[in-house]
């Protein structure tokens, strides 16, 4: 087995609160192979966002290790790209300038022209051709999220971290963006982690779904997704997908403490 690109080993983390330490992660395991895309699901407030900050190197775990591409993460690395539920845009910049923002931080050997071409290429890829000179305030929520996705991958990050990027969108826009994700992945392969609350989204986008237990979160269940490569929405309505969704839903109930845990033994 080749070395995983993202390897999280037994990570524990607690936040200091006024009523003492609050353990959010307790023995979390996650490994994503090169080119793999894992979805992480779990009950609300179980520490999923903490996980993204750990991978990005924005904070250090109390215990355990986070490895990216064979390197122990000790601080922020320019090899990650992030997109959040809130597609924060710099309102004073055009969409194109927003997308190019990471290229101003990460050192590249691209010329200004090449940077611009790359940003324009990505915008076209997500269906925002012709919007490059608009201000973010002129775009809808879905379009802003598309632009935010472009910004997350413009510097060709080795790891893409998506923290519930589609959660605030309406159902139809969300499904459009799922399709866009596959189109992007086909052209710009990346290794990624997707944090989500949506089990259908998890199955539709990822290769592997990781269920976290309730707080403190540990890895409770890992499911390999039966769908491979780019897929259509129809694939979500097959008996196999229904079975997978049922298993996941049941696992979430266990994580929430609403179903007995014995059945989880596997």
């Amino acid at each position: 087995m080749h070395r995983p690109l993202i390897d999280i080993k037994g990570v524990r983390h607690a936040y200091q609160t006024q009523s003492g330490p609050l353990q959010v992660l307790d023995g979390l395991q996650l490994s994503v192979p090169d080119g793999g895309f894992s979805a992480v699901v779990g009950p609300s407030g179980c520490g999923k966002s903490t996980l993204t900050r750990l991978i990005a190197g924005l904070m250090k775990p109390d215990d355990g290790e986070v490895w990216l591409n064979g390197d122990l993460v000790t601080g922020p690395k320019s090899i990650v790209g992030m997109a959040f539920q809130n597609p924060v845009m710099l309102e004073w910049r055009t969409i194109l300038q927003n997308v190019m923002l990471p290229l101003e931080i990460v050192s590249t050997n691209m010329s200004k022209r090449e940077k611009e071409d790359r940003a324009l290429h990505l915008l076209a890829l997500v269906g925002l051709e012709g919007f490059e000179d608009k201000r973010p305030s002129e775009l809808s929520g879905g379009m802003r999220q598309r632009a935010s996705l472009c910004r997350a991958i413009v510097h060709k990050p080795e790891v893409l971290i998506l923290d519930e990027p589609f959660a605030a969108l309406d159902a139809f826009t969300r499904e459009d963006l799922w399709q866009t994700m596959h189109a992007v992945k086909a052209e710009e392969p990346f290794t990624g982690v997707l944090i989500t609350h949506d089990l259908r989204e998890a199955i539709f986008l990822s290769d592997e779904v990781v269920v976290l237990s309730g707080r403190p979160a540990r890895t409770q269940y890992v499911m390999e997704v039966h769908l491979k490569g780019p897929r259509d929405i129809e694939h979500l309505y097959t008996p196999k997908s229904a079975d997978a969704l049922n298993i996941l839903r049941h696992q979430i109930q266990i994580a929430q403490g609403r179903a007995p845990a014995e059945e989880a033994a596997q």
Binding site: R53, A56, G57, L58, G75, P76, K77, S78, V80, M82, F84, N86, V88, L90, E91, W92, L101, P102, E104, I105, V106, R151, H155, I161
Partner: peptide
């Protein structure tokens, strides 16, 4: 999130201030 976008790329506090906090 504004801070995280730049901080995750290894931007310094000053860069974050100059590029985001100040204009915002």
């Amino acid at each position: 999130e504004y801070r995280d976008i730049l901080a995750s790329l290894g931007a310094s506090r000053f860069t974050i201030f100059w590029k985001i906090a100040l204009p915002k």
